[in-house]
Design a protein around this nucleic acid. Structure first.
Lengths: 233, 233
DNA sequence: CGCCAGTTTGACCAAGATCAACGCAAGTGG
DNA sequence: CCACTTGCGTTGATCTTGGTCAAACTGGCG
C-alpha cells in the first residue's frame, strides 16, 4: 500500500493536475503523504449512499480511492446542483467552519480514505508545510469552480456537454473511451440542464459522428477536434 | 494552538463578515494582521483599470481597502463571466500555480493593499498558523463559489437578482440603502444574465414595491421579506 | 417474462436573449 | 454656457433555446 505513495503516479492523482507531481517530486515531501496515509482509514459505500449531509459538522475529510463521489446542494423545492464530481485520487470534504457546505454521495460503489480533522491538525502542527499543501489543493478546487461558473453563466447546452466530456477525459485519461458512472440527471444537475437536454445533446453529437454511445454509461470520443471546437466556441 | 485554528474570528474579520469587529476583539489575532500589514504596500487604481490579467504570473495577493474589484474570465468570442466582486476588507489574487485564473479590475476608484508572495512565504515560515488561516479564507471563497454555481445552475432571473441584492447587503451591511458601484452589464456578467434582463427585473421589483431606485447606482430595499422569499424560492 | 428505473424522443411552451429604438445624464469642445 | 457626443440604462417587439409534459423505449434484474 505504501508503495503507491513512492510512485509519482499517485502524487499526480492526488492533486489530479500535472504540475503538482513535479512540484512535490522536486520538493521531496513524499514522506508527508505517507504520514497522511497513516492517519487515514479506508471506508466503502454502496451506490447512492450518503457520506455526509449538508449542514453536518465537518470532522474529517476524504480522498477517493475508487469510484466516483458527488457533492450536492439542494434548494427547498428540490432543485439540485452538483458542485463537483470527485474521481479516484481526488480529495473532498475539507470544509471550514461548523457546517458542511454540500452533501457528499456515492455515485457508484466507492472506496474512500477518511482523514480525521483532529489528526490532520496534529500533523500540521508537526509539519506546517502540509497546511500550505492543503491550501494549494483548495485553490485548485476554487479555480475549477470558477471555470464552471463560466460554463454555467455563459455557455450553451452543446458547449457545456462538450466541455464536460473533455473535462472527464482530462481528469481520468482513459483514451478515447469514457465511462460515465453518473446518470443523465446527475450530468444535468452538474451542468445546469435537464436530463432531456443532456440526452438530446448527446444524441445530436452521436448523429454528427462526434461521439459514439456503445452503452448508456459509456462514450467513445470519435472526433476530439470537433468536441474541442464545440467546447471553446 | 489547534483550538486557534478552529477559531474563525480572524477569518471573519478578514472577510468582513458581519460579526467582524467583535470577533477580532475577542480572538486576539490582531498581531498577525499587523505583521501582514507590515509586508503590504498601498496602491490605488482608477475606475476600470486592470490590476492584473488572466495568465499573468501570480507574485502577490491583495486586500481591498476601499472600492470594489471584479475578477473576470473571458471567452475567445468576448463572452465574459465575473467570478467575484470584492469589497473593502476582502482579499483576492491568492492564485496557486504559474498563471492567474482570472483577471482583476477596478470597478470604481480603489485603494488596495498588495502583499508579495515571497514575503508572505517568509512570514508563513515564521508563523505557520498563517498558512492555515489562508487555507480557511480560500475555503470560504470556495464555499461562496459553490453557492453561486447553485444560483447559475438552478435559479430564475428574479431569484438571481434578489439573491444578489441580499448578498450585497449581507457583505456590506449598510442598512436599507445599497450602492451598486458596478454597471448593469457587470451585474449581468456576474449572474449569467443580459443587461436588459437585469434592468427589466429591477424595474419589475420597483413596480412591485420591493425596492426603490433613487439613482442608477443606488437601491433601497423597501421589502426585505419579499426579497428573501424571491431569493430562496 | 414482466417490472422498473433510467433514457430517449416528440410536441409544445415560456423565459430570457436578441435586436432595435429611445431616454438620460455626464462629459467635451466650441 | 450651450450644442454635441457618448456611454449607460430602459423599454418594446420578436426569436430561440432549452424547459415542460407526455409517451415510448431499453436494459437489468427478480
Amino acid at each position: 500500500m505504501l508503495k503507491r505513495f513512492a510512485n509519482r503516479g499517485f502524487v499526480e492523482s492526488f492533486n489530479s493536475l500535472p504540475t503538482a507531481a513535479t512540484a512535490v517530486a522536486k520538493s521531496g515531501h513524499l514522506d508527508e503523504l505517507i504520514v497522511l496515509e497513516q492517519i487515514g482509514a479506508r471506508r466503502s459505500f454502496a451506490r447512492e449512499a450518503e457520506i455526509y449531509a449538508e449542514g453536518d459538522h465537518p470532522d474529517c475529510w476524504f480522498r477517493v480511492i475508487s469510484g466516483t463521489v458527488r457533492l450536492c446542494k439542494l434548494l427547498a423545492d428540490g432543485r439540485r446542483n452538483i458542485a463537483e464530481f470527485l474521481h479516484s485520487g481526488e480529495f473532498f470534504g475539507l470544509d471550514d467552519g461548523d457546517e458542511r457546505f454540500c452533501s457528499a454521495e456515492a455515485v457508484d460503489d466507492i472506496i474512500i480514505m477518511r482523514f480525521p480533522k483532529s489528526a490532520t491538525e496534529r500533523l500540521i502542527a508537526k509539519r506546517p508545510e502540509l497546511a500550505m499543501r492543503l491550501c494549494n489543493l483548495t485553490l485548485r478546487n476554487l479555480s475549477r469552480a470558477q471555470e464552471r461558473m463560466m460554463l454555467l453563466g455563459c455557455m450553451s447546452a452543446a458547449e457545456r456537454i462538450a466541455s464536460f466530456l473533455l473535462e472527464l477525459t482530462e481528469r481520468r485519461d482513459l483514451g478515447r473511451f469514457l465511462d460515465l458512472p453518473m446518470t443523465r440527471r446527475d450530468i444535468g444537475d452538474y451542468l445546469g440542464l435537464t436530463t432531456e437536454t443532456v440526452s438530446r445533446t448527446l444524441t445530436a453529437f452521436k448523429r454528427d459522428g462526434v461521439i459514439a454511445i456503445p452503452s448508456m454509461h459509456r462514450i467513445e470520443i470519435r472526433d476530439r477536434e470537433a468536441l474541442e471546437a464545440l467546447a471553446e466556441a
